[in-house]
């Protein structure tokens, strides 16, 4: 028995985050009625996504450039510093600042027993593999400052204790250029607790 192509496509769209049945229906009807061209373009793009995009073998960032991503292939970066982030989006945000010139490592998540995510589910083993074969002297832990992000940073800090590597944690505090009154309460309290001298 063959599937109803409309219903089938709607169901696939509805699996995407942020898209419900109704939006999925709207998207499918749009494709059929108004933009049949887009169907071909979309299919092609999706096939490319599946075939060409993979995790970088070193940092686990997503890349379409082969086994290693453009950052890991760069020769102008500082190979002594490694920044550990939880998610692809976090790397992108840090990269957008163009300030950090070291390398990255993407964990693809944080420790969360409630969701069944433990150390073996994160890209942690490969991080330690990397340390064996490189000249890294500082690791910056840039996991989020949530409960789970803090626990993940502490986990890594403990595991890194015997590695003779400097381990640092990103600072947290009030947003730059923003009024104090718009900072959320916990951030503000934390900024007060972690204040620094001049």
């Amino acid at each position: 028995m063959s599937l109803d192509p409309i219903q089938h496509t709607i169901e696939q769209f509805a699996k995407l985050p942020g898209i419900g049945e109704r939006t999925a229906l709207r998207l499918v009807l749009h494709l059929i009625a108004q933009d049949k061209n887009l169907i071909g373009l979309l299919s092609e793009a999706l096939v490319q996504l599946e075939q060409k995009v993979a995790e970088c073998e070193l940092c686990h960032m997503i890349t379409a450039d082969g086994a290693r991503c453009s950052i890991c292939r760069s020769v102008s970066r500082d190979s002594k510093i490694l920044c550990v982030v939880a998610r692809v989006q976090d790397l992108m945000a840090l990269e957008a600042t163009s300030e950090f010139r070291g390398f990255y490592h993407v964990l693809h998540g944080v420790l969360a027993p409630m969701e069944g995510i433990g150390p073996q589910d994160l890209r942690i083993a490969s991080l330690f593999e990397r340390l064996k074969q490189s000249e890294i002297s500082e690791i910056i832990l840039a996991t989020p400052s949530t409960v789970e992000g803090e626990a993940t940073a502490l986990y890594l800090a403990q595991e890194l204790q015997n590695h003779l590597i400097k381990v640092t944690r990103i600072a947290s505090g009030v947003p730059v250029g923003g009024d104090l009154q718009f900072a959320d309460r916990l951030t503000l309290s934390r900024a007060m607790a972690l204040r620094r001298g001049f």
Partner: peptide, 8 residues
Amino acid sequence: DLVELSSF
């Protein structure tokens, strides 16, 4: 995992 436990 004892290290994980100690982190939490």
